[in-house]
Nucleic acid binder design. Structure first.
Lengths: 344, 344
DNA sequence: AGCCTCAGGTATATCGTTGCACTAAGGATA
DNA sequence: TATCCTTAGTGCAACGATATACCTGAGGCT
């Protein structure tokens, strides 16, 4: 790797001049010098060492991304959106799989700080974000990519879809189709998003006066299990229980698409047909939703826009103590055949 | 962030002693001094700056990971396996989505070099890997996580599943069930893996004397389209064409599970039942394979072991010009209900 | 007593940048 | 002609670690 000194020698100038060139202080040199430097850089294939640059300026062009598990297609989609947004701004992304373990999150955060990252984006915030606050107080900019503002701890920026609206739209859609016996299938209220979605479901069903026709079916995740790639399998089991309930719900809303995929597979095993026997709404609108049989209605999060906002939070954080912002995006209902028929 | 000097002051020693402590040169100090340093580190919550360390030693604990798109569950699984293996060895992973664009790959590689990564792992090697060779010749250790040794360019390590064996096992399995009209559905031969899989299919069907009962159905990906998250949709279309062929194949082997998911959805639309009307074998064994209806037979890659081997290639590369290694792993046939019935 | 050894440290140059402080040369001004 | 300003640069001290080379005092040996 060529250094700035190699370039300086090749161009017959000092390292300072090359540095001036690199930092657009072009007024400090004649066009001729400028061209010589440019030529030398091209010739040597020179790229400034980010490491040296970082040590000198204290600023990195690197951000940390914490997700429970990238193997989960939802977090894969998030990781891709964040990386693209970061790249567009000249930033690199360091990937960390936390398995929803606070201890591991803390460990990663310490490593990332030692690496000098500009900030971290966390893809899923546990309900109890004090360990994130702790990071924020140590001077790290933290953006929670999930969970509403209420759940945010001090010093943490929030960029999230409106998780209350997500279930509200789902319920409204189903009620408009004539459904009343609607069951919301969810995992334990461990994350901010899950809590908000549950809240939205409760409020919407109450507003529509569904009474106890609206049900909540909570599936239990194994202890100490991040569960992300087995959520779908748990859905298969949950479908059995749901098939047996009487009266059986006419519509299901799943906490997320992965769970919905499992539910759909389980229902099919019991001869229950979607949408004829039961309607189904997923959440997240993974690319898999439109490949299901039948294609599934789901609530889409504007991931690209959200990713850009999240990265901007970190990049723009030039001003010392930027107040913790909270950006909430509206979800979009994507109607497909899993809710094609009216109830009754 | 506390520096080594802060620690030195707090412990009443010189920075050198703290450095000695950090680098396990314990013989250079009394137990008492050692304890004072330990205490100071704990008190100040000190972590050595990786940046400074890197500038000084020239070695980073960072590797670059190039994948076409992490949103693709297969590459999501790879990314997770690599990150875990890297973490176990104290390394960080920088994530890059290349969209299978050689130009973008080159750009990423340049950025990664400037960052001083220890090496890069590329999740999918284009057929023409000369741009990777170029990187290797510039002193970057490159590991191709796909593609067999033959396709490897000079200076590139290969860690891959045996892609010839993948289709060989698939064909053997189907033939053992009595199938003869077997069609291999694949995308264009753009990657080393695809080429090897095709080769395996051809050789195996020839060995079994299937003649022109063995067919190859090539789907075309849109130009300049990395295609990874639309492969499944193309599978839906391909299913239409396959449903119409006469005589219709009794078994399909899909280039990968994502394509298989699309094929399954398309076949279902045309009333063709798996496995009664047609058998199906996927490749990769994504977690989705066992959630399909019916659960799909697929060929599993030992991703964890492969990821560990790939990371080891980079980490162990202490010796100057380590010869380019080639590690090929055996796939495992996972039989499920999509091939549950015997043919005929 | 004089010399050596060795344990237990410390001083310092260095990695590749940056950016402030400085300066040499030339031109304008008084 | 002396002074000042501007232009087009250069010199140097950092940033936070490392490691080599150096130092120093205590004890052992002759």
């Amino acid at each position: 790797m060529a250094t700035i000194l190699d370039v300086a020698r090749a161009a017959g100038v000092s390292a300072s001049s090359v540095s001036n060139f690199l930092n657009d202080r072009l007024s400090k040199m004649t066009p001729a010098t400028r061209e010589r430097i440019e030529a030398a850089i091209g010739q040597l294939n020179y790229r400034p060492s980010q490491v040296a640059l970082q040590l000198k300026t204290g600023k990195t062009a690197t951000i940390g991304l914490l997700v429970p598990a990238v193997a989960n297609p939802f977090f894969g989609a998030i990781a891709m959106a964040i990386q693209r947004a970061a790249q567009a701004r000249g930033y690199q992304v360091i990937l960390c799989n936390t398995f929803r373990d606070p201890q591991r999150e803390r460990e990663f955060a310490a490593d990332l700080m030692a690496l000098g990252v500009r900030g971290i984006i966390t893809g899923s915030s546990l309900l109890n974000p004090e360990h994130l606050s702790e990071l924020a107080s140590r001077g790290l900019t933290v953006v929670a990519f999930e969970g509403d503002a209420a759940a945010a701890a001090p010093g943490i920026h929030v960029v999230s879809v409106d998780n209350v609206m997500v279930t509200t739209l789902a319920v409204d859609h189903l009620v408009a189709l004539g459904h009343r016996r609607i069951t919301y299938v969810t995992g334990p209220a461990q994350t901010a998003a899950r809590v908000a979605r549950l809240k939205g479901f409760r409020a919407a069903t109450e507003r529509h006066g569904l009474g106890d026709e609206a049900r909540i079916h909570e599936i239990s995740l194994p202890q100490n299990q991040y569960g992300d790639d087995m959520i779908a399998e748990l859905g298969v089991d949950a479908a059995l229980a749901l098939a047996k309930t009487s009266p059986r719900p006419t519509a299901l809303i799943a906490m997320n698409d992965l769970l919905a995929i499992g539910l759909a597979a389980g229902l099919r095993e019991h001869g229950i047909v979607i949408p004829d026997d039961i309607a189904m709404v997923g959440i997240d609108d993974l690319f898999l939703a439109r490949l299901m049989n039948p294609p599934m209605t789901s609530l889409r999060q504007p991931l690209s826009a959200m990713a850009e906002a999240a990265v901007d939070c970190l990049v723009a954080d030039g001003t010392e103590a930027a107040p913790a912002t909270s950006l909430i995006f509206a979800p979009e209902l994507i109607v497909r055949q899993s809710t094609a028929r009216t109830a009754g």
